[in-house]
Protein backbone atom coordinates (compact mmCIF):
# COMPACT_ATOMS: atom_id res chain seq x y z
CA UNK A 1 0.00 0.00 0.00
CA UNK A 2 1.38 3.38 -0.99
CA UNK A 3 0.89 6.77 0.70
CA UNK A 4 -1.11 8.18 -2.17
CA UNK A 5 -3.97 5.71 -1.83
CA UNK A 6 -5.03 6.93 1.66
CA UNK A 7 -4.81 10.56 0.47
CA UNK A 8 -7.11 9.83 -2.47
CA UNK A 9 -9.44 7.93 -0.20
CA UNK A 10 -9.48 10.83 2.24
CA UNK A 11 -10.23 13.32 -0.53
CA UNK A 12 -12.99 11.13 -1.91
CA UNK A 13 -14.39 10.67 1.57
CA UNK A 14 -14.45 14.45 2.19
CA UNK A 15 -16.10 15.13 -1.15
CA UNK A 16 -18.74 12.48 -0.56
CA UNK A 17 -19.35 13.83 2.90
CA UNK A 18 -19.69 17.34 1.52
CA UNK A 19 -22.03 16.10 -1.19
CA UNK A 20 -24.12 14.26 1.40
CA UNK A 21 -24.39 17.35 3.56
CA UNK A 22 -25.45 19.44 0.57
CA UNK A 23 -28.05 16.91 -0.40
CA UNK A 24 -29.21 16.58 3.17
CA UNK A 25 -29.70 20.35 3.48
CA UNK A 26 -31.66 20.55 0.25
CA UNK A 27 -33.85 17.69 1.22
CA UNK A 28 -34.45 19.21 4.65
CA UNK A 29 -35.47 22.61 3.26
CA UNK A 30 -37.95 20.98 0.95
CA UNK A 31 -39.27 18.67 3.58
CA UNK A 32 -40.22 21.47 5.95
CA UNK A 33 -42.40 23.22 3.35
CA UNK A 34 -45.66 21.36 3.50
CA UNK A 35 -48.44 21.71 1.00
CA UNK A 36 -50.63 23.44 3.53
CA UNK A 37 -48.03 26.18 3.99
CA UNK A 38 -47.64 26.70 0.28
CA UNK A 39 -51.41 26.72 -0.12
CA UNK A 40 -51.80 29.33 2.62
CA UNK A 41 -49.11 31.46 0.98
CA UNK A 42 -50.91 31.28 -2.35
CA UNK A 43 -54.40 31.96 -1.11
CA UNK A 44 -54.47 33.77 2.24
CA UNK A 45 -53.68 37.44 2.54
CA UNK A 46 -53.00 37.20 6.25
CA UNK A 47 -50.48 34.35 5.89
CA UNK A 48 -46.96 35.42 6.82
CA UNK A 49 -44.41 33.27 4.95
CA UNK A 50 -41.64 31.69 6.99
CA UNK A 51 -37.99 32.40 6.06
CA UNK A 52 -37.75 28.75 4.95
CA UNK A 53 -40.58 29.21 2.47
CA UNK A 54 -39.05 32.41 1.10
CA UNK A 55 -35.72 30.68 0.74
CA UNK A 56 -37.30 27.70 -0.98
CA UNK A 57 -39.20 29.92 -3.42
CA UNK A 58 -36.08 31.84 -4.34
CA UNK A 59 -33.80 28.83 -4.72
CA UNK A 60 -35.99 25.96 -5.81
CA UNK A 61 -37.33 25.79 -9.33
CA UNK A 62 -39.54 22.89 -8.27
CA UNK A 63 -41.10 24.94 -5.49
CA UNK A 64 -41.84 27.82 -7.86
CA UNK A 65 -43.44 25.41 -10.32
CA UNK A 66 -45.59 23.96 -7.52
CA UNK A 67 -46.67 27.46 -6.61
CA UNK A 68 -47.39 28.36 -10.23
CA UNK A 69 -49.56 25.26 -10.65
CA UNK A 70 -51.41 26.08 -7.49
CA UNK A 71 -51.97 29.67 -8.53
CA UNK A 72 -53.17 28.66 -11.97
CA UNK A 73 -55.90 26.66 -10.28
CA UNK A 74 -56.73 29.24 -7.63
CA UNK A 75 -56.38 32.53 -9.50
CA UNK A 76 -59.10 35.09 -10.08
CA UNK A 77 -57.32 36.66 -13.03
CA UNK A 78 -54.10 36.17 -14.94
CA UNK A 79 -52.32 38.79 -16.98
CA UNK A 80 -49.80 37.16 -19.21
CA UNK A 81 -46.54 38.85 -20.12
CA UNK A 82 -46.81 41.88 -22.38
CA UNK A 83 -46.54 41.52 -26.12
CA UNK A 84 -43.10 41.08 -27.57
CA UNK A 85 -43.35 44.48 -29.24
CA UNK A 86 -43.52 46.18 -25.88
CA UNK A 87 -40.51 48.23 -25.09
CA UNK A 88 -39.52 50.20 -22.07
CA UNK A 89 -41.40 50.14 -18.78
CA UNK A 90 -44.94 48.87 -18.52
CA UNK A 91 -47.33 51.15 -16.57
CA UNK A 92 -50.61 49.42 -17.43
CA UNK A 93 -51.72 45.83 -17.81
CA UNK A 94 -55.09 44.33 -18.36
CA UNK A 95 -56.64 40.93 -18.58
CA UNK A 96 -59.51 38.77 -17.34
CA UNK A 97 -61.58 41.87 -16.50
CA UNK A 98 -58.93 43.60 -14.37
CA UNK A 99 -56.66 46.54 -15.09
CA UNK A 100 -53.46 47.24 -13.19
CA UNK A 101 -51.97 50.71 -13.43
CA UNK A 102 -48.94 52.41 -11.92
CA UNK A 103 -49.28 56.15 -11.31
CA UNK A 104 -46.50 58.26 -9.86
CA UNK A 105 -47.24 60.23 -6.67
CA UNK A 106 -47.23 63.99 -7.11
CA UNK A 107 -46.23 64.36 -3.49
CA UNK A 108 -43.13 62.21 -3.62
CA UNK A 109 -41.32 61.13 -6.77
CA UNK A 110 -40.00 58.10 -4.93
CA UNK A 111 -43.47 56.77 -4.35
CA UNK A 112 -46.00 55.33 -6.76
CA UNK A 113 -49.66 54.30 -6.67
CA UNK A 114 -50.51 50.77 -7.76
CA UNK A 115 -54.14 50.76 -8.87
CA UNK A 116 -56.04 47.54 -9.38
CA UNK A 117 -59.37 48.08 -11.03
CA UNK A 118 -62.08 45.59 -11.81
CA UNK A 119 -63.83 46.40 -15.06
CA UNK A 120 -66.60 43.86 -15.17
CA UNK A 121 -65.93 41.43 -12.36
CA UNK A 122 -67.48 41.04 -8.95
CA UNK A 123 -64.45 39.27 -7.47
CA UNK A 124 -62.30 41.02 -4.90
CA UNK A 125 -58.69 39.90 -5.13
CA UNK A 126 -56.70 39.82 -1.90
CA UNK A 127 -53.27 38.88 -3.30
CA UNK A 128 -51.20 39.89 -6.27
CA UNK A 129 -48.35 37.70 -7.53
CA UNK A 130 -45.78 38.72 -10.09
CA UNK A 131 -43.62 36.01 -11.62
CA UNK A 132 -40.47 37.20 -13.30
CA UNK A 133 -38.95 35.33 -16.17
CA UNK A 134 -36.64 32.70 -14.64
CA UNK A 135 -36.87 34.64 -11.43
CA UNK A 136 -38.59 34.72 -8.10
CA UNK A 137 -42.25 35.30 -7.31
CA UNK A 138 -43.25 38.61 -5.76
CA UNK A 139 -46.32 38.69 -3.56
CA UNK A 140 -48.36 41.71 -2.45
CA UNK A 141 -51.30 41.70 -0.07
CA UNK A 142 -54.26 43.76 -1.33
CA UNK A 143 -55.75 45.01 1.90
CA UNK A 144 -58.50 47.31 0.81
CA UNK A 145 -60.25 46.30 -2.36
CA UNK A 146 -63.63 48.03 -2.46
CA UNK A 147 -65.95 49.49 -5.03
CA UNK A 148 -64.14 47.44 -7.63
CA UNK A 149 -60.84 49.10 -6.93
CA UNK A 150 -57.74 48.97 -4.76
CA UNK A 151 -54.99 51.49 -4.38
CA UNK A 152 -51.65 50.72 -2.77
CA UNK A 153 -48.93 53.26 -2.27
CA UNK A 154 -45.47 51.80 -2.77
CA UNK A 155 -41.89 52.87 -3.06
CA UNK A 156 -40.62 52.99 -6.63
CA UNK A 157 -37.72 50.89 -5.33
CA UNK A 158 -40.05 48.16 -4.20
CA UNK A 159 -39.22 44.85 -5.91
CA UNK A 160 -42.81 44.31 -6.94
CA UNK A 161 -42.95 47.72 -8.63
CA UNK A 162 -39.73 47.03 -10.50
CA UNK A 163 -41.10 43.65 -11.54
CA UNK A 164 -44.46 45.05 -12.66
CA UNK A 165 -42.69 47.48 -14.94
CA UNK A 166 -40.91 44.71 -16.78
CA UNK A 167 -42.61 43.40 -19.92
CA UNK A 168 -41.74 39.76 -19.39
CA UNK A 169 -43.61 38.98 -16.21
CA UNK A 170 -46.84 37.15 -15.48
CA UNK A 171 -49.27 38.78 -13.07
CA UNK A 172 -51.76 36.72 -11.12
CA UNK A 173 -54.58 38.01 -8.95
CA UNK A 174 -55.93 35.71 -6.29
Amino acid sequence: MTDTIPKHAETIFHMLDHFDSLMQKTDTSHNIIGFSELYAYATQGDHVPTPALKEALSSSLKMRRDLKRLLNKQSIATMMRAAAASSGQIERREGDGFVITLRPSQADKNQIYLLIHSEDRDDSPSLLFVEEENGPFHRLVIEDFYDGEAQILLSVQDDIVKALRKPKVDVILR
Binding site: S105, Q106, A107
Partner: peptide
Protein backbone atom coordinates in the same frame (compact mmCIF):
# COMPACT_ATOMS: atom_id res chain seq x y z
CA UNK B 1 -50.52 67.66 -2.12
CA UNK B 2 -52.79 67.63 -5.13
CA UNK B 3 -52.64 64.17 -6.62
CA UNK B 4 -53.42 62.72 -10.02
CA UNK B 5 -57.25 62.82 -10.36
CA UNK B 6 -57.17 59.10 -11.20
CA UNK B 7 -55.99 58.10 -7.75
CA UNK B 8 -57.93 58.08 -4.52
CA UNK B 9 -57.23 60.58 -1.81
CA UNK B 10 -55.00 59.20 0.87
CA UNK B 11 -53.67 60.11 4.31
CA UNK B 12 -50.07 59.04 4.78
CA UNK B 13 -47.87 58.82 7.83
CA UNK B 14 -44.99 61.25 8.01
CA UNK B 15 -44.17 61.36 4.30
CA UNK B 16 -43.84 57.60 4.00
CA UNK B 17 -45.76 55.29 1.67
Amino acid sequence: TREDPNVRSVICLDGTA
